[in-house]
């Protein structure tokens, strides 16, 4: 059970994020929602990378009894998470800058009023 907690957290984060995107009216909250979804996905990735009793993939301070590379944890999920975080930051920055521009032109952040484009 205890090992499932991260996965429950992942599901909870994604659902909270989706809730914020769908039901919150403020654009900033929409952005926050997307960031929460992203955290959920990142948490999922990093959880997958956890191996019980694994050894970090650093060759220089390897314990004596560990054979190479069998006992090592494959660093792929960590690498994926890092990449994903970097991309996430870029998306976040872009979204926030667009929100600033929207506020300048529309004078509001209410998602119900930012719909000149419809039909």
């Amino acid at each position: 059970m205890i090992f499932n907690i991260p996965f429950i957290a992942v599901a909870a984060l994604i659902i909270i994020g989706l809730y914020a995107v769908i039901f919150r009216k403020n654009l900033i909250k929409t952005v926050i929602g997307i960031t929460i979804i992203e955290s959920g996905v990142n948490l999922f990735l990093i959880t997958l990378g956890y191996r019980e009793g694994g050894v970090p993939p650093i060759y220089t301070n390897l314990p004596e009894d560990v054979s190479i590379p069998r006992g090592m944890v494959l660093p792929v999920p960590q690498a994926l998470t890092l990449t994903s975080i970097v991309i996430g930051v870029a998306v976040l920055a872009l979204m926030l800058s667009l929100v600033i521009h929207i506020y300048r032109v529309y004078g509001t952040l209410d998602v119900r009023r930012i719909r000149r484009l419809r039909e």
Partner: peptide
């Protein structure tokens, strides 16, 4: 244009 961009990125 900004609105469209925001919708697209979301």
């Amino acid at each position: 244009a900004v609105e469209a961009g925001f919708k697209y990125i979301v």
